[in-house]
Each structure stands twice: as structure tokens, then as C-alpha cells.
Design a protein around this nucleic acid. Structure first.
Lengths: 159, 159
DNA sequence: AATTTGGTTCTGTTAATCCTGAACCAAAAA
DNA sequence: TTTTTGGTTCAGGATTAACAGAACCAAATT
């Protein structure tokens, strides 16, 4: 098995990115795998390369990888005549990811609409402020896709 | 102690909003307090009202409230000649909150810049895509405040 | 001075998370 | 047919999180 090497700087960066992902609620092993796949020189790593360089057990590696696959955070490809899977970070498919994250964010808007609808009419100011917040969320929901298109156009003016 | 009443619809809504907050990484008790304070008819609740209606212990209430205060998710006011604190949701100060959330989001941009800076020059396409992602995050960082201003202007055209 | 109020802090329990190591398995290779 | 490869699944173990209950405390009230 071709084991991979990391510089001290890379190891440090993986740990720090790992902490970031942990702070977003991702478990430690998954967080490090995410980080490893963007930091290391190799574009794709096998199960065993991940396991070895991160020094985690096979079962932890298996579960973490499968969770990341299900969460669409990583992908893999295969090669003809080779049973191994070659895993890559999905961070560069960030357009899709961002859409998913935004959908999550806007779930709160729907809940807040329910809250707004059931509130006592007594608290006029509170209700108005809540309505205003909901309004802004809906504004964002409409405008963010446009912002994305503008950015694409700025990058590729010919389109 | 003036204990508060909730309709069945309100109880259900509190649980569902609570689950939403839990999914963002907030502990159960804190999640329910957050939800209670936007759903219930009263604009402000005391320590004991929260404790009683949510059926949690004094210590759990104390810790949850103090965590929410530190995280700026709730606030309280006091009344002259009254030792109790009256807690309110800070969700309507969402402008500030959104700025804080965005700062968190952009912490990943800084990490990704470090990743980009240390990457092997061999992987040209990957590096370019990473650079492109960073570019979009920085674009968002610049444009989101403008979007917010546009919305305010749309709401209050006289300003 | 004793009690009540409005909490905080400490200790212990339960429950959940995250991991290891071992057993296991199917497909491929020897 | 046996062994190796590339994993998965299962049975615990360690750590951490979240809460309850009780003791505690200072300020105010009686």
C-alpha cells in the first residue's frame, strides 16, 4: 500500500481545519477526513491511506467515510480492474452544497411563519418585528440566487 | 408565582422549533427555552416560569439560561424593586446575530486561504477550483451587507 | 433573628457519542 | 482450495453531554 506523507505544516492545518468542522457539529474522525482530502497533495485517497495517515481503526474509517458519503461531503471513483475506492473531497462541488445549506437555513423561515401565524394579536410590536425578520429571510431567499448569477457573470462575462 | 399556560398548538410548535435548534447543535433544554420565548403569549418570562412550563430542574434552567445569555441568544431586563430577571428572546435582534453567523461562516474562508497557499502546485485544476470557491466567499462577504442595505431601503424608501 | 426569594454550584446518574478490536464476508488472486 | 484484499458489522469501552437533586448563598422580607 502506497502510504502518504504529510509535512508538519500540513498536519497542523488538518488539525485546525478539523477543529473548525467539529465546531459545526461534525464528529472528530469525519472532520479530519474532510480536512485531509483538501490539504494533502494527492487528489484522491484510498480507505487504507486515510486509515493509516489519520491513525484510526478500520471501523471508525468505514463509518466516517460512509457518513461523509451519505452527507454528500465526499465522493469516490473507481478504476477498471481495481477494487479499491478513491475518495475525493466534495468541497469543490460547493455550488450544490451551498444550495443544500441554504435550504436548511430557510427551514427556520417556515417555522417562524407558523410561529407568527399563531401568535396572540396583543403583542403588536413583537409580531411586526417577527414579520420583518421573516420578510428579510424571504428577500434573501430570492436575492441570493441572483447574487450567485451575478458572480458567475463577473467571472465569465461572455456568457 | 404566575404560572403560564400554553395551548396544545403552542406546545407542539415549541417542540418542533426545539428540534430545529437541536439540529443546529444546541442542547435540548436551551433549544426549548429559545422556542418558548418566541411562541408563548408573554413577551418576557421569569426563571421560575421557564422552569415550570418546561418541566426542567433549577440547575438545568440556570445553566441553560446562562449559556443562552453568553451566546447572546436571549436577554433580560429587571424591574425596580423586583429581584427577578425577565427574559426575552434575542431573535428580533437578528441583524446583529446574522453578522455574528456570517463571521463564523467566513472563518472557513480564511482557513481555505491557508490551504490554498500551501497546496502543491502540481494540482492546477483543483487549486483553481479552490481559488474560485474562495473568490465566491469573498464576493458574498462584500455583497451581503449591500443586500441588507437594499432591503432596508426597500422597506423604508424615505431614508 | 429567622425565613423567603431568586437563583448558583456541586455531586452523581443516565444517556449518547465516538472509538477500538475482533469477527466476519464476498470477490479476487494465488 | 486457500489466501489476500477491501472493506462491513458487531460487541464492548471510554469519553463526553445533559440533566436531576440537594446543598448552598446573598439579598430582601418578616
Amino acid at each position: 500500500m502506497q502510504s502518504i506523507q504529510l509535512s508538519e505544516a500540513q498536519k497542523d492545518l488538518i488539525e485546525r481545519c478539523g477543529v473548525f468542522f467539529e465546531q459545526t457539529g461534525m464528529p472528530p474522525a469525519e472532520s479530519r477526513i474532510m480536512s485531509l482530502l483538501v490539504v494533502c497533495d494527492e487528489l484522491e485517497l484510498t480507505f487504507d491511506q486515510v486509515r493509516e495517515v489519520l491513525m484510526i481503526s478500520k471501523s471508525a474509517t468505514s463509518n466516517a467515510i460512509n457518513n461523509l458519503l451519505m452527507a454528500q461531503q465526499i465522493t469516490y471513483r473507481t478504476r477498471l480492474g481495481d477494487r479499491k475506492r478513491y475518495f475525493t473531497s466534495n468541497i469543490l462541488n460547493w455550488e450544490e452544497n451551498m444550495v443544500i445549506e441554504l435550504q436548511k437555513l430557510f427551514r427556520i423561515t417556515n417555522l417562524l411563519k407558523e410561529v407568527h401565524a399563531q401568535r396572540t394579536p396583543e403583542t403588536v410590536k413583537f409580531n411586526n418585528q417577527l414579520g420583518s425578520f421573516i420578510g428579510f429571510m424571504e428577500y434573501l431567499h430570492d436575492e441570493l440566487p441572483k447574487l450567485f448569477q451575478q458572480w458567475q457573470h463577473k467571472k465569465n462575462p461572455q456568457i
